[in-house]
Design a binder for these strands. Structure first.
Length: 865
DNA sequence: GTTCTAGAAC
DNA sequence: GTTCTAGAAC
């Protein structure tokens, strides 16, 4: 019966951090956290508005420019998403940048212009560069962004994907993000034909932003000369092959025309043309708008083509006049949007008052730690969305709503949280954002939030600034007195609930019954307990803070998580309808499925995909319905056998392994382990014992790479390991160590790790014994590298320890494979390398101490033990 | 696990 | 032409 039930895919739920690459990185080695070049914590300006609200720390817009390899001005700052490899001086993308774009620093003193707006503060345009390799697109961008009058973002496809070449879709996403933040965007890619430009024009049209084109119509000879001199160009357009590529690209060139939707097209053939156009766009601002039309030197054929195209489309009317009219319409529309009711259409999830029904408990809360405490916005948004997701899952169907509030419609946090919430599929009925004053929600017609959160300080004192000062001021001295009765200080990552006294204006005017003080992590060196850029700890504390806040909210609202009894009631209610009678467990699963929280296990099984299912919070239900129990021993454990396993700190949990289909190619180790005498000759079996065999990996990923394969039938992978296997794991480890000692005798310079893959491709539990040189021709792919250097590789000693203490291995879950797709990071110096060839070159010379494990085995450690 | 192929991009 | 990625097949 249990096997018929659809189960959640992960014990941490559909929105488990392990599914989120950004958050996943937090579980990378602690030493991987981004650092500024100087090693000093970032000291971003505190752009605090005068009205006591949360200031906007526009990390992206206030950051210094980011630069790719081929265009990096050597004398400019590099922000914390980039780091320089001290060994070879390369600039490499840090792991925190999933997609990399370059942005100008803001040039104005006011928040208004820092944030910008396509409506008024800036003349926002989408500038599409058109030109073959070597035409000077990158130089154009560098010059444009060096001292532009308004903020620009450069989208360079060559470096957008963690410092290497990405896709058009990534460029589009980043362009949209920047445009929505009020930044002009320059698209640095060839854009050589209509198809390559089409999506960008559509994007601009959708956002009601003018598209401009600058055609770098540089003679092919010059392009080839330039490209030939380049080295290590991402697209391979350098050296001897540059001419062929450029000639081919130029042959496919389609000259941009106004009828594609461009507002303005500028042609540049010689350097002075380029300089002139660069200056035009550098000067661009509302008081210096550029006229529509076609400008610059071009040949007569191009001009005729462009004008004819425009004339045909507009029925003989000058394209320029049509576009001017359109421009006026856009401006008028933009004006309407700006004067609307304070909700910003850019925030798709902005909750309007009508969305919230009085009587339902609603928590209004500010973004924690992103103002004075200078926590990185992107990371904070990721943590927040994760916490909301968990909250929604835990308190489904009980009417609790969360509203993230910020004072300004230009709030960076509102924008990115909305985006991430949408991406994560958060329930828009129970979470939204709102632009307004958190202390005046009722009186200003905002959502009726009777509980509000305060981004407090550790002393729980009024003052300082931002939300804390505003709430204490609005509440009057009564709140401070009430708070004193509850606590005198507050730990980071925790919260306290204070009932707002009846006499407080916040209560009798705004209807706020409770204030929940919450304290997040501090990244501001000017404030106490600064974490100095330690985002591993910081995210942990922030997560604790939000979790504590939301739990306090639930506590005040006097609701409880969805539990067995409530689900049972739901089941009974469901059974009152005509459908088949369902038990509580099935009802829960059906509800989860409706919310999209349950994977289609059956269909995945049909496809032979790996299916590991861990469910949460249903153990009592399973017991109640007699659908499972703890395994008594290790007798099960072949494919297709469901099993249940016990508790951990999160709460009572059930671990259930569902059928995994092993393809024929993945059975090689299984066959050899069970029948070592029949091992194919290509496999070098070194030792056979009663419990394991030792063999050389057929495709070694390092100088020395052995496998110690268990001979216990049914023990396919780590997922199958239980407490009773601890002794076996220790024997396997010892066997591996024996061979390590032998290797080290011959070559004492080697360093080894012993460990398991979280989600192995080959059936039959096997320990990897691998030297850390990774000097092997068989190491070809990112997946290879990350399987041995990311947390996907579980150290044998850690595995043994976990099995002994908790009875199973808490591996990376169903999303372990995401770890394999992460950036290529040197296991010594932590620098990111753009591809495998570059990585291999780098690691062959990198001499930093190894930093990828606490369990490295060296000649001295073996001799000393 | 590997190998092969196609496609995208410059 | 080269590099990289994703997917299919084994």
């Amino acid at each position: 019966m249990a096997s018929e039930v659809k189960l959640p895919k992960c014990k941490y739920g559909e929105n488990c951090y392990r599914k989120n690459p950004d958050h996943l990185r937090l579980f990378w080695h602690p030493s991987s956290r981004p650092e500024s070049i100087s090693g000093e914590p970032s000291t971003k300006p505190n752009n605090k508005p005068p009205n006591g609200s949360e200031p906007e720390n526009q990390s992206s817009s206030s950051a210094p420019p980011r630069h790719g390899r081929d265009v990096t001005p050597k004398d400019e700052d590099v922000d914390d998403e980039w780091e320089i490899d001290a060994d070879d001086g390369e600039v490499t993308a840090c792991s925190e940048a999933e997609e990399v774009v370059e942005e100008t620093p803001t040039t104005s003193n006011s928040d208004e212009s820092i944030l910008g707006t396509r409506d008024s503060a800036n003349a926002v345009v989408l500038l599409i560069l058109v030109g073959p390799p070597g035409s000077g697109k990158s130089t154009f961008c560098s010059k444009l962004m060096s001292s532009a009058a308004q903020p620009w973002t450069r989208i360079c496809q060559d470096i957008i994907a963690k410092g290497k070449r990405g896709t058009r879709q990534q460029c589009l996403r980043q362009a949209e993000s920047a445009l929505l933040r009020g930044r002009s965007v320059v698209i640095d890619r060839c854009n050589i034909d209509k198809k390559q430009r089409e999506d960008f024009l559509k994007l601009a049209s959708r956002l009601k932003i003018n598209s401009h084109a600058v055609v770098l119509d540089v003679p092919p000879r010059i392009c080839i000369e330039r490209a030939t001199k380049r080295i290590a160009h991402e697209g391979g357009v350098h050296g001897g092959n540059a001419a062929a590529v450029i000639n081919r690209v130029i042959r496919t060139r389609q000259v941009p025309s106004l009828d594609e939707g461009f507002f303005r097209i500028s042609f540049c053939r010689i350097d002075p043309d380029v300089e002139k156009v660069i200056q035009e766009y550098k000067d661009l601002q509302p008081s210096k708008l550029l006229d529509p039309g076609v400008f610059g030197a071009m040949n007569k054929g191009q001009a005729r083509s462009l004008l004819n195209g425009g004339k045909d489309q507009y029925g003989g009317v000058s394209p320029t006049s049509v576009i001017r009219d359109e421009m006026r319409n856009v401006a008028a529309e933009a004006g309407k949007q700006q004067s609307s009711n304070g909700s910003d259409s850019r925030h798709g999830r902005t909750l309007r008052p009508a969305n919230l029904v009085p009587g339902e408990e609603t928590l209004a809360f500010p973004s924690i730690s992103t103002a004075d405490f200078q926590f990185d916005h992107e990371k904070a948004a990721t943590v927040l969305v994760q916490c909301i997701s968990e909250f929604q899952a835990k308190y489904a169907h009980v009417g609790l709503k969360l509203v993230l509030v910020d004072l300004t419609s230009k709030s960076h946090m509102l924008s990115i949280v909305s985006k991430k919430a949408s991406e994560e599929g958060l329930d828009g009925n129970t979470f939204g954002t709102f632009v307004g004053d958190i202390t005046k929600l009722r009186s200003s017609g905002g959502p009726p939030c009777n509980i509000i959160a305060n981004a407090a300080n550790w002393r729980l004192k009024p003052g300082g600034g931002g939300v804390n000062a505003a709430i204490y001021k609005a509440a009057g001295p009564e709140l401070e007195q009430a708070t004193k009765k509850v606590a005198s200080t507050l730990q980071a990552g925790s919260s306290i609930v204070v009932e707002v006294p009846q006499a407080s204006a916040l209560r009798n005017q705004e209807g706020v019954t409770h204030v929940i003080h919450v304290l997040g992590p501090n990244m501001n060196p000017q404030r106490p307990n600064c974490l100095s850029g330690d985002y591993v700890e910081g995210c942990k504390v922030l997560r604790n803070a939000y979790t504590s806040l939301f739990e306090s909210f639930a506590s005040v609202a006097q609701v409880k998580p969805v539990k067995a009894d409530s689900v049972k009631r739901m089941g009974e209610a469901g059974n009152s309808h005509n459908g088949p009678k369902l038990n509580a467990f099935q009802v829960l699963m059906q509800a989860s499925k409706r919310k999209g929280e349950v994977g289609d296990t059956a269909s995945k099984r049909e496809k032979g995909e790996k299916v590991r299912v861990v469910e949460e919070g249903v153990a009592s239900l399973r017991e109640e319905h007699g659908e499972g129990g703890r395994p008594s021993d290790a007798t099960h454990q072949g494919s297709g056998h469901a099993e249940v396993q016990g508790n951990n700190s999160v709460g009572q949990q059930v671990r259930k392994k569902v059928d995994r289909k092993w393809d024929s190619w993945s059975l090689a180790l299984y066959k050899i382990a069970l029948h070592p005498d029949d091992a194919p000759s290509k496999n070098s079996v070194l030792e056979v014992t009663d419990f394991a065999i030792v063999m050389e990996d057929l495709y070694p990923k390092a100088k020395r790479h052995l496998l110690v394969v268990s001979r216990t039938q049914g023990l396919d992978e780590l997922e199958d390991v239980r407490r009773e296997h601890a002794g076996l794991l220790e024997r396997i480890h010892s066997l591996g160590m024996k061979h390590v000692a032998s290797f080290l005798k011959h070559d004492p310079s080697l360093v080894f790790r012993l460990g398991y893959h979280s989600a192995p491709s080959m059936r039959q539990l096997h320990l990897h014994v691998i030297s850390q040189d990774f000097d092997s021709a068989s190491l070809k792919h990112k997946k290879h590298w990350n399987s041995f250097t990311s947390p996907f590789f579980r150290d044998s000693l850690d595995v043994i320890s976990e099995v002994k203490t908790q009875g199973y291995v808490d591996n990376c879950g169903p999303n372990a494979e995401k770890l394999l797709d992460m950036e290529l990071r040197c296991h010594r110096c932590r620098s990111v390398q753009p591809n495998i060839p570059r990585l291999k070159t780098h690691i062959s010379t990198c001499n930093r101490p190894l930093s990828n494990s606490n369990h490295l085995i060296t000649a001295s450690s073996v001799n000393g033990s």
